[in-house]
Design a binder for these strands. Structure first.
Ligand SMILES: [Zn+2]
Ligand SMILES: [Zn+2]
Ligand SMILES: [Zn+2]
Ligand SMILES: [Zn+2]
Lengths: 165, 165
DNA sequence: GAATGTTATGTTATATTATAACATTTCCAT
DNA sequence: ATGGAAATGTTATAATATAACATAACATTC
């Protein structure tokens, strides 16, 4: 179909319809939980929604602040337990280098965490490149190492920030 | 020559001469600092030595405890500042997923952080595979993302732990 | 070799991130 | 409705990291 796709649109444009991103994420979460027999409670659903409020990783205590605005009794365990649940199901990834969390864009695949993270604007984009997975698996196998999961975090500048100056 | 190298010896055997690992690391640090005009003070040198005490990542506060045994006035900034210096020079890597630190086995190359980490014994092995670098760079370029550095942390089981049962 | 600026370390306090432990509530199946 | 399991509430604390300012060590120039 033509050669229109030279650069994958991995980073979302600032002006995009983010409501749809959120909606889609919540829908996927809904059906994934149903399929797994997991309970997507109001709290968990809301935390996922807050995580998805932007395309930037968000910290647990930032989430807590937002939660407190609507649940007077929210406390650290409230948000950490919800995150634990969401991560367990693959709905959220933890960004190790930032101590922050981000919604997964393809939660049904059961993949490891791979992100490009902009050091200027803080936005992050999830990637899932077969070449990288293959390279890691090959290399691990050569080393006699059995892979459980991996985390890849690439820090740099996103297309938007690069074009801005 | 020949075909002796089917499995790279990435993970060190428990019985190896670790004194040589340490010696080599300190020597490289010495010359690298000289080349860069950086001051490898007694404190920094000692922290690097402590980091290299094993092939396992070590936490800042574990380092601090060891330091305290010989420097009554060691405090968190003592170790964090030394680590900052060592990381800056590429002599130490930070393992994000563990909040821990590990000596770099090839500090002159100026590479990003790539580790295989055993979930059973806690040992970690640094890797530097050209395929992985290439995959990350290609993919980033396709996405219009300019890479500053990256961190790869693969969790799994090391050869030793696999053979043990 | 004193004066001066710079870098490194000491020192105290506090910020940030995360978990432990136990009580209570909600949910669901019987 | 009742008992057991899962989720949430609640309080306290652990673990990791940095801010801010004071002093000491080092190097450079005069
Ligand atoms: Zn994902
Ligand atoms: Zn950006
Ligand atoms: Zn290295
Ligand atoms: Zn092991």
């Amino acid at each position: 179909m033509g050669k229109t796709v030279s650069k994958a649109k991995i980073f979302k444009k600032p002006g995009h319809d983010h409501g749809r991103c959120i909606k889609s994420a919540l829908d996927m979460a809904q059906s994934l939980c149903a399929a797994r027999g997991a309970r997507l409670t109001e709290l968990r659903r809301r935390v996922l929604e807050l995580v998805w409020a932007s395309h930037r990783p968000i910290g647990a205590y930032d989430l807590l602040d937002k939660l407190k605005a609507e649940r007077h009794n929210a406390a650290p365990p409230t948000v950490y337990r919800a995150l634990e649940f969401l991560i367990e199901l693959g709905l959220v990834h933890r960004i190790e280098s930032l101590n922050a969390y981000m919604g997964c864009s393809g939660p049904d695949a059961g993949h490891s965490s791979q992100f490009l993270i902009c050091r200027d604007c803080g936005s992050a984009a999830e990637i899932n490149d077969a070449r990288i997975d293959a390279a890691i698996n090959n290399l691990s196998q050569d080393a006699g190492f059995s892979v459980h999961h991996h985390s890849i975090e690439v820090e740099g500048r996103c297309p938007d920030c690069r074009s801005t100056r």
